[in-house]
């Protein structure tokens, strides 16, 4: 592999973690989030600041993961109060708030972002493997959650909150758990991203990024881990492989998002169902 392929594959790995983590919240637990990139950003900024203070890598990554998770739970508290359309708009607000705050603070580097993040001290290829291990772990974790008891509880909350409550499920704690798991994974992805580029700016974590992550989930099929991973690889690679698309990347994302929702809301996983005749378990 040349340096270009390695760098591309590392990017794919990071996006897989992001898409799988959003799928936990939106797909499994049914809580729509239009602000996922904010948690990606919280992780990235935490790691960038701490690593510049000289913290070792495993500590900064852990800190990035937990800071995103803690703020995720706080944002998750809103999902206890507002639902569906209201929740979508509040999480959209979170995306704008994050960029709005970071951009104005000297402490976070303002518009210029943070540069000179220390190196991870590995070869590029070793770092790729490092990222892919985390991507693999998050896929496995996601599968485990789906099959475990908590996955069924998430399903019930997503399907019909009223019924789930009647059955005696503690809806609040399940929603918060989904937010905690999803956002801390996004924080980890942010940390990996910070070490990968060694330079971060607020715009990277804006609303459009949130929509990009959401489009990976929506195109793959909301709730289907397999579909989401497949769509992520496809969507990240496509503009790179077909250079001429790069100029129209956003047009493509927009049209795909629109087209999938309009004609096939089940996404790619819908085709899987079509081929095998049974729903992906």
């Amino acid at each position: 592999m040349g340096p270009y392929e390695i760098s591309l594959a590392t990017g794919v790995g990071i996006y897989v973690i992001l898409a799988v983590s959003l799928n936990l919240i939106t797909g499994y637990c049914g809580q729509i989030s239009l602000g996922h990139a904010a948690f990606f950003g919280i992780g990235a900024y935490t790691v960038a600041l701490l690593s510049k203070l000289g913290w070792p890598m495993y500590l900064t990554l852990a800190a990035g993961l937990s800071s995103a998770g803690i703020i995720g739970v706080i944002i998750g508290l809103t999902s206890l109060r507002v639902k569906e359309d209201f929740l979508a708009i509040v999480t959209m607000g979170v995306a704008f708030l994050f960029v709005g705050i970071v951009r104005q603070q000297e402490f976070f580097g303002g518009e210029m972002g943070i540069s000179g993040i220390p190196s991870h001290g590995m070869t590029k290829f070793a770092y790729l493997c490092f990222v892919l291990v985390f991507a693999m772990l998050s896929i496995l974790f996601s599968w485990y959650v789906k099959k475990a008891w908590i996955g069924f509880a998430f399903d019930a909350v997503a399907d019909d909150e009223g019924t789930a409550r009647t059955l005696g499920l503690d809806i609040k704690s399940y929603k918060l758990t989904a937010f905690a798991m999803g956002t801390s994974m996004a924080g980890l992805a942010g940390g990996l991203y910070a070490y990968y580029t060694r330079f971060i700016v607020p715009e990277t974590f804006g609303f459009i990024e949130s929509i990009t992550i959401l489009s990976m989930v929506a195109v793959g099929g909301i709730g289907s881990t397999f579909g989401v991973v497949f769509a992520t690889v496809l969507l990240v690679m496509m503009p790179e492989v077909f250079r001429f698309i790069n100029d129209y990347k956003l047009l493509l994302y927009g049209a795909l998002l629109f087209g999938v929702m309009r004609f096939k809301p089940e996404g790619l996983s819908g085709f899987y169902t079509l081929l095998t005749g049974n729903k992906e378990k």
Binding site: D85, I211, Y253, M261, R262
Partner: peptide, 30 residues
Amino acid sequence: VYEPILNKPPYVALIASIGLYIAMEELFRL
């Protein structure tokens, strides 16, 4: 756009609409 997906869950129309908006923005740019 909306008439055929009105009976789907609310996020379907919302995401379709966001997609449509982004596509429109890019079309204006082109």
